[in-house]
Design a protein around this nucleic acid. Structure first.
Length: 277
DNA sequence: CATATGTCCTGAGAGC
DNA sequence: TGCTCTCAGGACATAT
Protein backbone atom coordinates (compact mmCIF):
# COMPACT_ATOMS: atom_id res chain seq x y z
CA UNK A 1 0.00 0.00 0.00
CA UNK A 2 1.80 3.00 -1.27
CA UNK A 3 2.70 5.45 1.46
CA UNK A 4 5.22 8.27 1.21
CA UNK A 5 8.33 6.13 0.48
CA UNK A 6 6.56 4.11 -2.19
CA UNK A 7 5.14 7.19 -3.93
CA UNK A 8 8.53 8.91 -3.75
CA UNK A 9 10.05 5.80 -5.36
CA UNK A 10 7.44 5.89 -8.13
CA UNK A 11 8.25 9.53 -8.80
CA UNK A 12 11.99 8.88 -9.03
CA UNK A 13 11.40 5.84 -11.18
CA UNK A 14 9.35 7.57 -13.86
CA UNK A 15 11.16 10.92 -13.80
CA UNK A 16 13.52 10.53 -16.75
CA UNK A 17 10.76 9.03 -18.84
CA UNK A 18 8.44 12.00 -18.57
CA UNK A 19 9.76 15.13 -16.86
CA UNK A 20 10.50 17.88 -19.36
CA UNK A 21 8.88 15.97 -22.22
CA UNK A 22 5.80 16.58 -24.36
CA UNK A 23 2.82 14.34 -23.70
CA UNK A 24 1.96 12.74 -27.00
CA UNK A 25 -1.06 10.75 -25.88
CA UNK A 26 -2.95 9.71 -22.77
CA UNK A 27 -5.20 6.73 -23.02
CA UNK A 28 -7.58 5.21 -20.48
CA UNK A 29 -7.44 1.51 -21.20
CA UNK A 30 -10.53 -0.65 -21.26
CA UNK A 31 -10.69 -2.78 -18.15
CA UNK A 32 -13.42 -5.17 -17.16
CA UNK A 33 -12.68 -4.63 -13.45
CA UNK A 34 -13.99 -1.90 -11.22
CA UNK A 35 -12.89 1.34 -12.91
CA UNK A 36 -10.57 3.77 -11.16
CA UNK A 37 -12.06 7.14 -10.26
CA UNK A 38 -11.40 9.84 -12.84
CA UNK A 39 -12.01 13.51 -11.99
CA UNK A 40 -13.68 15.46 -13.43
CA UNK A 41 -14.04 12.91 -16.27
CA UNK A 42 -11.86 11.19 -18.84
CA UNK A 43 -12.61 13.68 -21.60
CA UNK A 44 -10.92 16.46 -19.63
CA UNK A 45 -7.55 14.73 -20.00
CA UNK A 46 -7.56 15.25 -23.76
CA UNK A 47 -6.49 18.83 -23.00
CA UNK A 48 -3.09 17.61 -21.82
CA UNK A 49 -1.92 16.17 -25.12
CA UNK A 50 0.71 18.29 -26.82
CA UNK A 51 1.72 19.93 -23.56
CA UNK A 52 5.00 19.54 -21.74
CA UNK A 53 5.15 17.90 -18.34
CA UNK A 54 7.22 20.57 -16.60
CA UNK A 55 7.73 18.96 -13.24
CA UNK A 56 6.85 16.00 -11.04
CA UNK A 57 6.10 16.53 -7.37
CA UNK A 58 5.08 14.30 -4.48
CA UNK A 59 2.46 15.68 -2.12
CA UNK A 60 2.04 13.27 0.79
CA UNK A 61 0.94 10.02 -0.84
CA UNK A 62 -0.06 11.70 -4.10
CA UNK A 63 1.96 12.09 -7.28
CA UNK A 64 1.58 15.44 -9.04
CA UNK A 65 2.34 16.04 -12.73
CA UNK A 66 2.52 19.75 -13.48
CA UNK A 67 1.90 20.56 -17.16
CA UNK A 68 2.84 23.78 -18.96
CA UNK A 69 -0.83 24.61 -19.48
CA UNK A 70 -1.34 25.29 -15.76
CA UNK A 71 -3.10 21.98 -15.24
CA UNK A 72 -1.88 19.41 -12.74
CA UNK A 73 -2.65 15.74 -13.08
CA UNK A 74 -2.83 14.05 -9.70
CA UNK A 75 -2.40 10.32 -9.24
CA UNK A 76 -3.53 8.71 -5.97
CA UNK A 77 -2.39 5.08 -5.96
CA UNK A 78 -4.34 4.33 -2.75
CA UNK A 79 -4.04 0.58 -2.04
CA UNK A 80 -2.68 -1.07 -5.14
CA UNK A 81 -1.89 1.62 -7.70
CA UNK A 82 1.51 1.68 -9.42
CA UNK A 83 3.27 4.02 -11.81
CA UNK A 84 5.49 2.04 -14.16
CA UNK A 85 7.95 2.45 -16.99
CA UNK A 86 8.28 -1.32 -17.41
CA UNK A 87 5.77 -4.05 -18.19
CA UNK A 88 3.04 -4.19 -15.52
CA UNK A 89 2.51 -7.18 -13.18
CA UNK A 90 -0.62 -8.11 -15.15
CA UNK A 91 -2.16 -6.70 -18.31
CA UNK A 92 -5.72 -7.01 -17.04
CA UNK A 93 -5.42 -4.27 -14.40
CA UNK A 94 -3.70 -1.73 -16.63
CA UNK A 95 -5.56 1.59 -16.42
CA UNK A 96 -3.68 4.43 -18.10
CA UNK A 97 -1.02 4.65 -20.77
CA UNK A 98 0.86 7.92 -21.29
CA UNK A 99 3.32 8.41 -24.14
CA UNK A 100 5.94 11.15 -24.02
CA UNK A 101 7.99 12.42 -26.96
CA UNK A 102 11.63 12.41 -25.88
CA UNK A 103 13.17 13.27 -29.25
CA UNK A 104 12.26 13.56 -32.91
CA UNK A 105 12.15 9.81 -33.23
CA UNK A 106 11.73 8.39 -29.73
CA UNK A 107 9.03 8.20 -27.14
CA UNK A 108 8.65 6.69 -23.67
CA UNK A 109 5.65 5.09 -22.02
CA UNK A 110 4.46 5.65 -18.46
CA UNK A 111 1.71 3.38 -17.13
CA UNK A 112 -0.73 3.43 -14.26
CA UNK A 113 -1.68 -0.05 -13.08
CA UNK A 114 -4.15 -0.74 -10.26
CA UNK A 115 -5.31 -4.21 -9.29
CA UNK A 116 -8.12 -3.24 -6.96
CA UNK A 117 -9.19 -0.11 -8.75
CA UNK A 118 -9.38 2.05 -5.65
CA UNK A 119 -6.96 4.54 -7.17
CA UNK A 120 -7.90 8.00 -8.39
CA UNK A 121 -6.64 10.36 -11.07
CA UNK A 122 -7.68 14.00 -11.17
CA UNK A 123 -7.03 17.05 -13.29
CA UNK A 124 -6.80 20.21 -11.21
CA UNK A 125 -6.67 23.91 -12.01
CA UNK A 126 -4.37 26.05 -9.81
CA UNK A 127 -7.09 27.08 -7.34
CA UNK A 128 -8.08 23.46 -6.80
CA UNK A 129 -4.46 22.46 -6.34
CA UNK A 130 -4.02 25.17 -3.74
CA UNK A 131 -7.12 23.97 -1.91
CA UNK A 132 -5.64 20.48 -1.80
CA UNK A 133 -2.33 21.79 -0.44
CA UNK A 134 -4.20 23.77 2.18
CA UNK A 135 -6.03 20.81 3.60
CA UNK A 136 -2.96 18.58 3.95
CA UNK A 137 -0.59 18.72 6.88
CA UNK A 138 3.18 19.25 6.50
CA UNK A 139 5.08 16.63 4.51
CA UNK A 140 6.30 13.85 6.77
CA UNK A 141 9.69 13.39 5.08
CA UNK A 142 10.89 16.81 6.20
CA UNK A 143 8.62 17.50 9.15
CA UNK A 144 9.99 19.73 11.91
CA UNK A 145 9.37 19.34 15.62
CA UNK A 146 7.49 22.62 15.70
CA UNK A 147 5.15 21.75 12.84
CA UNK A 148 4.48 18.28 14.26
CA UNK A 149 3.83 19.79 17.65
CA UNK A 150 1.35 22.24 16.15
CA UNK A 151 -0.40 19.40 14.32
CA UNK A 152 -0.64 17.06 17.30
CA UNK A 153 -1.92 19.84 19.48
CA UNK A 154 -5.10 19.90 17.40
CA UNK A 155 -6.30 16.50 18.60
CA UNK A 156 -6.83 14.34 21.66
CA UNK A 157 -6.75 11.08 19.74
CA UNK A 158 -4.20 8.32 20.27
CA UNK A 159 -0.99 9.22 18.47
CA UNK A 160 -0.96 6.29 16.03
CA UNK A 161 -4.37 6.95 14.45
CA UNK A 162 -3.50 10.65 14.44
CA UNK A 163 -0.37 10.02 12.37
CA UNK A 164 -2.60 8.50 9.69
CA UNK A 165 -4.64 11.68 9.40
CA UNK A 166 -3.35 13.40 6.27
CA UNK A 167 -4.69 16.74 7.49
CA UNK A 168 -2.27 16.57 10.41
CA UNK A 169 0.78 15.03 8.70
CA UNK A 170 0.95 14.15 4.99
CA UNK A 171 2.46 10.87 3.85
CA UNK A 172 2.34 8.47 6.80
CA UNK A 173 0.22 5.33 6.39
CA UNK A 174 -0.53 2.32 8.52
CA UNK A 175 2.76 0.50 8.03
CA UNK A 176 5.15 3.36 8.68
CA UNK A 177 3.14 4.75 11.62
CA UNK A 178 4.00 1.63 13.63
CA UNK A 179 7.64 1.76 12.54
CA UNK A 180 7.97 5.43 13.46
CA UNK A 181 6.49 5.06 16.93
CA UNK A 182 8.69 2.07 17.66
CA UNK A 183 11.85 3.97 16.78
CA UNK A 184 10.56 6.92 18.82
CA UNK A 185 9.89 4.69 21.82
CA UNK A 186 6.37 6.07 22.14
CA UNK A 187 3.32 3.88 22.75
CA UNK A 188 0.77 4.03 19.90
CA UNK A 189 -1.95 4.48 22.52
CA UNK A 190 -0.57 7.73 23.94
CA UNK A 191 -2.90 10.68 23.53
CA UNK A 192 -1.50 13.44 21.33
CA UNK A 193 -2.27 16.32 23.64
CA UNK A 194 -0.46 14.59 26.50
CA UNK A 195 2.86 14.06 24.73
CA UNK A 196 5.74 15.95 26.26
CA UNK A 197 7.82 18.27 24.13
CA UNK A 198 10.80 15.94 24.13
CA UNK A 199 8.53 13.08 23.08
CA UNK A 200 7.29 15.09 20.11
CA UNK A 201 10.94 15.68 19.21
CA UNK A 202 11.45 11.90 19.28
CA UNK A 203 8.44 11.32 17.00
CA UNK A 204 9.50 14.03 14.54
CA UNK A 205 13.06 12.69 14.39
CA UNK A 206 11.84 9.11 13.98
CA UNK A 207 9.42 10.14 11.22
CA UNK A 208 12.16 11.68 9.08
CA UNK A 209 14.56 8.84 9.88
CA UNK A 210 12.23 5.94 9.08
CA UNK A 211 10.83 7.49 5.93
CA UNK A 212 14.17 8.56 4.50
CA UNK A 213 15.62 5.09 5.04
CA UNK A 214 12.51 3.51 3.52
CA UNK A 215 12.94 5.77 0.47
CA UNK A 216 16.56 4.60 0.22
CA UNK A 217 15.33 0.99 0.14
CA UNK A 218 12.62 1.90 -2.42
CA UNK A 219 9.69 1.14 -0.15
CA UNK A 220 8.15 -2.04 1.22
CA UNK A 221 6.90 -4.96 -0.87
CA UNK A 222 4.67 -7.06 1.39
CA UNK A 223 3.78 -10.73 0.99
CA UNK A 224 0.98 -9.90 -1.41
CA UNK A 225 3.67 -8.54 -3.74
CA UNK A 226 1.44 -5.73 -4.88
CA UNK A 227 3.82 -2.84 -4.46
CA UNK A 228 6.65 -2.71 -7.01
CA UNK A 229 8.98 0.05 -8.12
CA UNK A 230 8.66 1.68 -11.55
CA UNK A 231 10.68 -1.13 -13.09
CA UNK A 232 8.28 -3.72 -11.61
CA UNK A 233 10.86 -4.86 -9.05
CA UNK A 234 10.41 -5.49 -5.31
CA UNK A 235 11.22 -2.78 -2.81
CA UNK A 236 13.65 -3.67 -0.03
CA UNK A 237 12.45 -2.09 3.17
CA UNK A 238 10.26 -5.04 4.19
CA UNK A 239 13.50 -6.76 5.23
CA UNK A 240 14.14 -3.98 7.74
CA UNK A 241 10.75 -3.71 9.41
CA UNK A 242 11.09 -3.33 13.16
CA UNK A 243 7.56 -4.28 14.21
CA UNK A 244 5.14 -4.29 11.28
CA UNK A 245 3.75 -7.79 10.63
CA UNK A 246 6.10 -9.16 13.29
CA UNK A 247 3.62 -10.08 16.02
CA UNK A 248 5.05 -12.70 18.38
CA UNK A 249 8.67 -12.00 17.42
CA UNK A 250 11.26 -10.53 19.75
CA UNK A 251 11.58 -6.74 19.77
CA UNK A 252 14.74 -5.79 17.84
CA UNK A 253 15.47 -2.95 20.27
CA UNK A 254 15.15 -4.42 23.76
CA UNK A 255 15.48 -8.12 22.80
CA UNK A 256 13.31 -8.83 25.84
CA UNK A 257 9.71 -8.38 24.90
CA UNK A 258 7.54 -9.93 22.22
CA UNK A 259 5.94 -7.63 19.65
CA UNK A 260 2.22 -7.22 20.10
CA UNK A 261 -0.57 -6.51 17.60
CA UNK A 262 -3.57 -4.42 18.58
CA UNK A 263 -6.37 -2.82 16.55
CA UNK A 264 -6.87 0.94 16.62
CA UNK A 265 -9.71 2.50 14.59
CA UNK A 266 -10.03 -0.70 12.56
CA UNK A 267 -6.34 -0.80 11.63
CA UNK A 268 -3.56 -3.10 12.84
CA UNK A 269 -0.93 -1.54 15.07
CA UNK A 270 2.30 -3.33 15.96
CA UNK A 271 4.44 -2.27 18.91
CA UNK A 272 6.72 -3.39 21.72
CA UNK A 273 5.03 -3.03 25.13
CA UNK A 274 8.49 -3.29 26.69
CA UNK A 275 10.18 -0.26 25.17
CA UNK A 276 7.37 1.98 23.92
CA UNK A 277 5.86 4.12 26.67
C1' DC B 1 -16.81 20.44 15.88
C1' DA B 2 -14.12 16.05 16.82
C1' DT B 3 -13.94 11.18 16.17
C1' DA B 4 -15.56 6.82 14.76
C1' DT B 5 -17.41 3.75 11.50
C1' DG B 6 -18.74 2.07 6.81
C1' DT B 7 -17.44 1.71 1.95
C1' DC B 8 -15.08 0.62 -2.22
C1' DC B 9 -12.07 -3.75 -4.20
C1' DT B 10 -8.96 -8.15 -5.31
C1' DG B 11 -6.40 -12.05 -4.26
C1' DA B 12 -3.47 -14.31 -0.71
C1' DG B 13 -3.83 -17.32 2.88
C1' DA B 14 -6.38 -19.78 6.52
C1' DG B 15 -9.33 -23.31 7.72
C1' DC B 16 -12.21 -27.09 6.92
C1' DT C 1 -7.18 -31.02 -3.31
C1' DG C 2 -10.65 -27.48 -3.55
C1' DC C 3 -13.89 -24.82 -1.64
C1' DT C 4 -15.41 -20.68 1.30
C1' DC C 5 -14.22 -17.13 4.24
C1' DT C 6 -11.50 -13.33 6.26
C1' DC C 7 -8.40 -9.83 5.93
C1' DA C 8 -5.31 -6.12 4.19
C1' DG C 9 -5.91 -0.31 4.33
C1' DG C 10 -5.77 4.23 1.01
C1' DA C 11 -9.35 8.42 1.31
C1' DC C 12 -13.73 9.89 1.70
C1' DA C 13 -18.87 9.72 2.99
C1' DT C 14 -21.80 9.20 6.60
C1' DA C 15 -22.89 8.48 11.52
C1' DT C 16 -22.40 9.48 16.36
Amino acid sequence: MPELPEVETMLRGIRTACEGHILQSLQFLPCTRKPITINPDRNAFARLSGHQLDRLERLGKRLLMHFDCDLTMIVEPRMTGLMLVADPPTTEHLRIQMKFRTSQADCTTVLFWDRRGLGTVSLLVPAELQALRDRLGPDALTITTDSLRAALRKTRRAVKPALLDQQLVAGVGNLYASEILHLAGISPRRRCHRLLRREVVQVADATREILSIAVRYEGSTLNDGTYRNALNQDGGYQNHHRVYNREGQLCPTCQQTVIKRIVQTQRSTFFCPGCQH
